[in-house]
Amino acid sequence: MYSKDELLTKAAGIKPWLVEIRRDLHRHPELGMEEYRTRDKIIEYLTEMGIPFERDIAHTGVVGFIEGGIEGKTIALRADIDALPITEMNEVDYKSQNVGKMHACGHDAHTTVLLGAAKLLNDNKENLKGNVKLFFQPAEETVGGAKPMIEAGVMENPKVEAVFGLHIAPDIPVGEIGVKYDQMNAASNSLSITIKGDSAHGATPHNGTDAILIAAKVISALQTIVSRNVDPRDSAVISIGVIQGGTAANIIADTVTLTGTVRTLHPDVRSYVLKRIEEVVSHTTQAMGGTFTLTIKDGYNVLINDNSMVDIVKQSAIELIGEENVHQLQLPSLGVEDFAFFAEAAPSAFYRLGGRNEERGIVHGLHTNQFDIDEDCLPLGAALQALTVYKYLNEKK
């Protein structure tokens, strides 16, 4: 096992390599389930390091395997590899070359950090008490690659006892991290509501049933679920993002379609809110003489960290960067993260790695066309993931 100073020195020594990887990936972003070049580059780096792997898991996923020199447990590190449909506006020499696609959520950095951790661990694998699986996961931003990877068996043979992952945080300065106990990210569901009325001339609305008016009442009524049905001490969000309906200014619309999203932080609240949505849509629509169809689809589950795993990350970070640079986050995010499925399958911890640098103007948020990172976070992330592995495998009973 490396000492703290040895680990930081070795991580700093591979920074140029990490920067080269990250910038190459950043120049060539690919959307979910289309990460063919990214997959091939990951395979190229694993091959150079002599790390065996399985490819094309859950379509474009890759799983590397580092076998330690001492028999022990198996844990996994996870990175997502897909990009977003955003046109990059940064004028940098590593600007996206794929028009309309951009690594605006830092998955290029996540992939790089995992490759860096793999190198640090693999170079010292004879002192590793156990094994490490490297999960390079597709499609976090779209259909979600975590669940199909699990269904493909990545948590078995050998059985994975714990999973650790991280996400770049543009609101945390580089050199610092954020950890969160219990709930980290919300669960999501998508809504599609089609409201049917009867068309009529706009001058004689009494001859029809106004689907737009019904839709307005439905949207207003849905908000009462959060304000009047959910315990104020819990969290829920219902957002309607798209309204489509009507054909002309003087025609009463006979069809309106609403689409939106639901976010919750507790499984019981999730079930209750979805039940109330169906009741509210049904009763409101019928009371106004219309009919409806409602489709609710599951998205990602709530990401709940295992507190003992968070303790390991926290202690590793304190050793590397000092307690003053380790922030305990108080509030969960209502954003979603499909690492949640790994966290359901095994005790896990997901944390935030600072990438902000105000002096260099690196301040823009995730999913924006000017997002960037301070690349000093890359060796730190690699070292922290590696030390977390050592602590779990060598110290945890």
Rank of each mutant, 00 (worst) to 15 (best):
P173R: 07
S199Q: 14
I177G: 06
F136A: 07
S192M: 15
I195G: 03
K180I: 10
V132R: 04
G153L: 12
G145R: 03
A162L: 11
I168G: 04
G165T: 12
F135I: 11
H201S: 03
H167D: 11
G175V: 04
G145C: 05
S188C: 11
I195R: 14
A187S: 14
Q183N: 01
V132E: 04
S188L: 01
N189T: 12
G202S: 07
D198Q: 10
K180N: 09
Q183L: 05
T204V: 15
M149V: 15
A139G: 04
T194C: 09
G153E: 07
I195T: 10
V132I: 15
V179C: 11
K180P: 01
I177K: 00
L166A: 06
K147F: 06
K159R: 10
F136M: 15
L166P: 07
T194M: 13
V179H: 03
P148H: 14
Y181F: 13
H206M: 14
I193V: 13
E161Y: 13
E161W: 02
V179L: 09
S199L: 01
M155T: 04
G165R: 13
I195H: 01
A146G: 04
G165P: 00
Q137K: 06
A139L: 14
E156P: 05
V163T: 11
S192Y: 05
G145P: 04
K159H: 11
V143N: 01
P173Q: 02
P205H: 04
A203C: 15
V163A: 15
V154Q: 06
P148L: 09
L166D: 00
E140C: 02
E176W: 01
E156C: 03
D182T: 03
E161A: 14
S188P: 08
N185R: 14
G144L: 05
M184G: 04
S190T: 13
G165N: 06
T194R: 13
